[in-house]
């Protein structure tokens, strides 16, 4: 499944400072759909090159990270259970505090 993943607010530093990743994620054997839960574990294995604890906590993202699926808070689509479809754009953004 073709997906676009974007990292911002400093999270890009965990994946070699690349903000936009066009990726191809295969369905896990025996599964019919790809959920955010699956995607997060895929990201952790394939994209996060350092300090995974700065991106994840348990099976979800760490506190202070907003997840947006097609410009919409994942809280509105079911968080980890959100089913992804072809060409979805998923943004992971760390909240900023500077001023």
């Amino acid at each position: 499944m073709q997906l676009t993943l974007e990292f911002g607010g400093g999270l890009e530093l965990l994946c070699q400072s690349v903000k936009i990743h066009k990726v191809n994620v295969d369905l896990q054997a025996g599964k019919e759909k790809l959920t955010m839960r699956d995607l997060l574990s895929w990201v952790r294995t394939n994209l996060i090159k350092e300090r995974p604890e700065m991106f994840m906590k348990g099976e979800s993202v760490r506190p202070g990270v907003l997840v947006l699926i097609n410009d919409c808070d994942w809280e509105l689509s079911g968080q980890l259970d959100t089913t992804l479809v072809e060409k979805d754009v998923i943004v992971f953004i760390s909240t900023l505090h500077g001023g």
């Binding site: 700065m54 202070g64 990270v65 500077g98």
Partner: peptide
């Protein structure tokens, strides 16, 4: 939006990470 605060190690500051003046 953020019921739990992020870990302190995730809180970058302008005095450490820098900021381009026009952005704020």
């Amino acid at each position: 939006l953020f019921p739990t605060p992020p870990p302190t190690s995730a809180c970058q500051r302008c005095s450490d990470s820098g900021v381009l003046g026009v952005v704020p």
